[in-house]
Each structure stands twice: as C-alpha cells, then as structure tokens.
Design a protein around this nucleic acid. Sequence first.
DNA 1: GTTTGACCTGTAGTGCGCTACAGGTGGCAC
DNA 2: GTGCCACCTGTAGCGCACTACAGGTCAAAC
Lengths: 134, 134
Amino acid sequence: MSEVLLPEVTVEVPPEGLSITEVSRATGIGVEALRYYEREGLLLDPTPRDAGGRRRYREGDLAWIGGLVMLRETGMSIADIRLMADLCRREGTERERLELLTRHRERVLAELRRTQRHLHAIEAKITSYEAVTT
Amino acid sequence: MSEVLLPEVTVEVPPEGLSITEVSRATGIGVEALRYYEREGLLLDPTPRDAGGRRRYREGDLAWIGGLVMLRETGMSIADIRLMADLCRREGTERERLELLTRHRERVLAELRRTQRHLHAIEAKITSYEAVTT
DNA sequence: GTTTGACCTGTAGTGCGCTACAGGTGGCAC
DNA sequence: GTGCCACCTGTAGCGCACTACAGGTCAAAC
C-alpha cells in the first residue's frame, strides 16, 4: 500500500518503515528539522525506533508529518502546531482543534487575498516594463 | 491631491509632507522599520528632512514605499529589494528590473498555488471536524 | 577486527528582519 | 526658561525556525 503524504507526493512505506533520510527526501524537510520537530513535541508521539535506536517512520507517522507540513507551509507557528499536537493526543478536544484550524484558515485566507492584490500590482508593473523594454 | 499608497490605502499628503509617525500609521510599517529600510538603502533616495533634521515624506517617497510594502509582503527579501532600488537609481536598467520582478512573480505564483492546495486540505479537515462536533 | 557510514544526543550557532534602547536635539506651550 | 514630546543617530538585542557541530553508537562491508 502506498501513502498519500501530500497532494503531490506519494510514498511507498515498507513494513519496517522509512529511515529519517528517506522521510527527508520524500517531504523536503531536512533531517535536522525532522529531529527538531520531534524534540519540540510537534509529532503525535515519539517516532518508533529500531533495535539500534534509529527512527523508523511508519504510515501513521508519515500521515501526521504530511499534515504538519501543510500547517507549517501555510505559516502556522511551531507553538500552534505543538498546541494542535497536544490537543490531538487527548480525546474530546475536537471542538478546540476545530477552533484552532478555523482561526488558521482565516489567517491563511486573509494572507492569500492580500498576496493576490499585491500580485496584481506587481503584474501591472511588469506589463509597463515590458512596454518599455520591447 | 491624494495619493494611492496601496490598493486599500489612500493618504492625503500635505505640501510639507508627512512625519515618520504619520507614514507608519498609514502603511502599518513601524517607525523603527521605516528607519531601518532607509539605512539599508531600500528607499530610492534618502528621505528629505526639515530644518530640524526630521524626515518629511512627500508623495514620491510614499509611492515608492507603497511598492516596497507590496514586495516585502509578497516575501521579497531585503537584499532583493535593495537590488531593485539600486537598479531604479540607474537609467537603462529596465531589462534587469523586469527580470527581477518576473522572477519574483514566479515565486509568488508558486507559493500562492501551494498555499491554495494546502488550504483545501485544511478545509477538508475542518469539514470532518464539523461533522464530529455537531 | 577495523573501517565506513548512517544514525544518535545534546548544545551551540546562524540568518533574517526587525525592535529596543541610550543618549541627544529642536521646537512649541506655558 | 523650562517642560515636554516627537524626533534623531548609533548600536545592541531579540524571536523565530532552523542548522551545524562534537562526540558517540551500531551494523554491515571488507
């Protein structure tokens, strides 16, 4: 079975899991950043280890990391992601999770709209330069 | 005459210009940041001063700052904005300015599309939580 | 058995973009 | 003339999110 990590990324996860370097390559997150996220409590639970103490990421770990990437890349702070992880560890916190996500969505939407406005202005400038440089 | 600073912000600029605090309020940029931008060579030319050495921003200064805000808020680095300012001080650099802007537009567009993809995923999650918490 | 290399922990350092003083000046209000 | 306040310069400090060691372990490769 293969795991949909991000809309544009799919990974095959063998039964023994993936090494940290493999996850890094699949997600685009650096190895040090992956360890940092774990240290900071951003993962749902500590990554399972093999006999030698090395991290082995399973499908569930990958799924969570996929979500984490989306939150990070849309600008959610480390502190808020930790909050989300803390909530997801406790049952009956669905309402709070929903609130956190909803507030995040509002911020992302506002930022998206602002960027689009600015983009239009930038494109107008580009057009005027194109007229000059032809 | 009133100046269109940003698509959503218009300022009345008196003939003697605006003080740094007034510009700060109009643009949302902090006073310290405005001084920092000037120090870093992000302004087209040093802001004109009154007899006492205080900055007095005129329409032209405001127009440039409006553009600067758009570049910053779409994620252009301080270094690249300085580059743009350097180019705009020299004539015959229109082609380079166009290139810089075009590369920036590509980055902004890519980021915008990624954010939109992530937003869809976040909204799907929100929907599923809404189903649970009703 | 030793070399190689990927991994580990713990801690210190980095880059960016501000932000916060400290210490001083200029001009108006009273 | 003395408060007071907004402004000035110069420099130091900060918050965030990593990133880079140093020094060590473990397992397979030779």
